[in-house]
């Protein structure tokens, strides 16, 4: 890895200040994506601003109908949180299936969502639950946040401070892992909330997407039978040695049905 200047601010304000005006500076939360990227010399940041010391960013709160997860909250903490398990068990389940225990002990929701890896799990929950991403400057609705392959609505130097998930009446996440990396080859998050039914798919395409046809069918009848004949077109889906676009399209259907069944349990 190339060397860089290292900073460990104590507040969001200081972190934002350190990033300001430095286009090549990068924030670091868990480092579970950033450090492997640096080790492979795929990035050359001038500065790394470690958010690990920013206390205000970590933690889970229930605020009314929402579960609010701080940006620096580790996957392991979401997976084991009593509040999350009670309010949105599917979210805890999802967090508990990201990577391995050591990755979950370090990786954070803010880092994962900001990175928007096409094979990441959290984007499925953010879109599936119609969550709101809060940054140091604004609130961004899930549907406006993920812009494409590794692209988000975040501006340079903008930091995710928390993500607010509405409680769901029913929800489940089904992940079909890539056999090698164990990231999501296809992950489907299905949720029925006060705001309606959502089906969000991660892993299959360049960016998380919703399946409108399934949402409509499930809104009428929230059962796997309702979506069994809905075919997902393979066009534009990812294709690699572990899964062709056709296979991924097929898996979206299988995982969606299984998610609905799990949500109904």
């Amino acid at each position: 890895m190339y060397d860089f200047a290292y900073h460990r601010p104590k507040s969001v304000a200081d972190a934002v200040g350190l990033l300001k005006g430095k286009p090549e500076a990068r924030a670091m939360s868990g480092g579970m994506t950033l450090i492997p990227t640096l080790k492979q010399r795929l990035a050359r940041p001038s500065d790394v601003v470690d958010l690990g010391g920013v206390k205000e960013l970590a933690g889970i709160k229930v605020e009314g109908n929402n579960v609010v997860v701080g940006g620096m909250t580790r996957h392991a903490d979401v997976a084991t949180s009593a509040e999350v398990k009670a309010a949105i068990p599917a979210l805890a389940h999802l967090a508990g299936h990201i990577g391995d225990p050591q990755v979950r002990n370090r990786g954070t929701i803010g880092g994962s969502v900001a990175n928007n890896d096409p094979a990441a799990d959290y984007p499925g929950a953010v879109v599936g639950l119609n969550a709101t991403v809060t940054t140091n400057t604004r609130k961004i609705a899930a549907d406006d946040f993920f812009k494409g392959l590794f692209e988000t609505a975040l501006a340079d130097g903008e930091l995710i401070t928390s993500i607010s998930f509405p409680k769901a009446e029913k929800a489940a996440y089904m992940k079909f892992p890539n056999p090698a990396s164990r990231y999501a080859m296809v992950g489907v998050f299905v949720a029925k909330t006060a705001g309606g039914v959502r089906v969000a798919v991660t892993g299959a395409g360049p960016c998380v997407f919703r399946v409108k046809a399934m949402e409509d069918a499930l809104a009428k009848n929230f059962s796997s039978a309702a979506i069994k004949d809905i075919k997902i077109p393979a066009d534009g889906l990812n294709s690699d040695i572990h899964g062709s676009a056709e296979y991924r399209a097929h898996l979206v259907g299988v995982m969606a049905r299984r998610a609905v069944d799990a949500a109904n349990k």
Binding site: G31, I35, Q40, D50, P101, Q102, N105, R106, S181
Partner: peptide
């Protein structure tokens, strides 16, 4: 490994298991 996947480097930091190949020394201050 160089992709944070093999676990040969696992240690405990503040009681939790972590991959020491995916943490900077300065993060363990």
């Amino acid at each position: 490994c160089d992709t944070s996947q093999c676990g040969a480097c696992v240690i405990h930091v503040d009681g939790k298991s972590v991959k020491s190949c995916t943490m900077l020394a300065v993060q363990a201050e």
